[in-house]
Design a protein around this nucleic acid. Structure first.
Length: 291
DNA sequence: CGCCCTGTTGGGGA
DNA sequence: ATCCCCAACAGGGC
């Protein structure tokens, strides 16, 4: 669910309410959350420490605690971080008890969400160094920067955008959106993008993420604001029609196939398929049987 | 009713 | 470097 704009929306909503507060209790109801770390160990490191800052890096939500203790969380696909949701909230995995009587509950039906510990600023930097690249909304992503990152890569443009080690925070929905806005086919080799295409794609990534952020991260049906408000009724800021039949720009039928292992929606008139590249067949009902 | 497929993510192994 | 599969569950199509 949460790509960069969603996580940032959550961070902004929560920061004023948790910064300066001490985490008095950390109840890990699902040990899988912090595995392979021991729950008691994580609990001991967190409890009693103050949240100095609530930060975001890529799609990670980071509790920067006192004494350089960093609790690095990831919501993955279906995780939500709710503020005082009430005891009947479903799929509770972790409870953060704050020293002002309020609480944060991490809820996640699919149990993909994770919490990891970095002890010391250096450990935190090491954690991110191998996982996330530049922050696209920090003003550092332009055509030349994107071109430098894509240089030499033979993989498709979509797989490139989804690679968190290059550009942080772009997920499946914003990748499709940016490619559509830039008129770039997802299977076009990233390293073969022209300067003009890199320019368009960089701008499209920044614009799409910014639009999502302005809309309060309401991209996805499952999105839930920390206050429990459901978002994502209409993807009004998304130019690219995902569910519909026809391209809003030219009317051509949107085709779907699997690219970079994800469902991918394309208008092959607005995003011309490179010569020599065949459109993959969407495997329907076909399952590569187990041996 | 029940089976089968899909999915907003990232890590690990081939 | 790149691709495929998997984690665990809900929901929809048939």
């Amino acid at each position: 669910m949460p790509e960069l704009p969603e996580v940032e929306t959550i961070r902004r909503a929560l920061a004023p309410r948790v910064e300066g507060r001490r985490i008095e209790a950390l109840e890990i109801l699902d040990p899988r959350w912090c595995a392979p770390l021991d729950c008691a160990e994580v609990r001991h490191a967190v409890e009693g420490r103050a949240v100095e800052r609530l930060e975001r890096r890529g799609k990670y939500l980071v509790f920067a605690l006192s004494d350089e203790v960093h609790l690095i969380t990831h919501l993955r696909m279906t995780g939500t971080m709710l503020y005082d949701p009430g005891p009947d909230a479903r799929y509770q995995r972790v409870r953060f008890g704050l020293d002002d009587g309020h609480e944060l509950r991490f809820c996640d039906p699919r149990r993909f969400g994770t919490g990891e510990l970095a002890l010391g600023d250096a450990a935190r930097e090491a954690f991110f160094a191998g996982r996330v690249g530049i922050e696209p909304l920090d003003g550092v992503l332009d055509g030349p920067a994107l071109r430098a990152l894509a240089r030499g890569r033979r993989t498709g443009a979509k797989a490139f955008l989804l690679d968190q080690r290059k550009i942080a925070g772009v997920g499946n929905i914003y990748a499709d959106e940016a490619l559509f806005r830039a008129g770039v086919h997802p299977l076009r080799a990233a390293g073969a993008l022209t300067g003009r295409q890199c320019e368009a794609l960089a701008r499209a990534v920044v614009d799409a993420l910014s639009a999502g952020l302005e809309a309060g991260g309401a991209t996805i049906d499952d999105f839930r604001h920390p206050d429990g408000v459901q978002g994502g009724f209409q993807h009004e800021f998304l130019v690219h029609l995902r569910e519909g039949e026809e391209c809003l720009t030219c009317g051509r039928e949107i085709v779907k196939f699997v690219a970079a292992g994800r469902g991918t929606y394309v208008c092959e008139r607005c995003q011309p398929r490179p010569r020599g590249v065949r459109r993959p067949q969407a495997p329907r009902g076909v399952r590569s049987g187990r041996p």
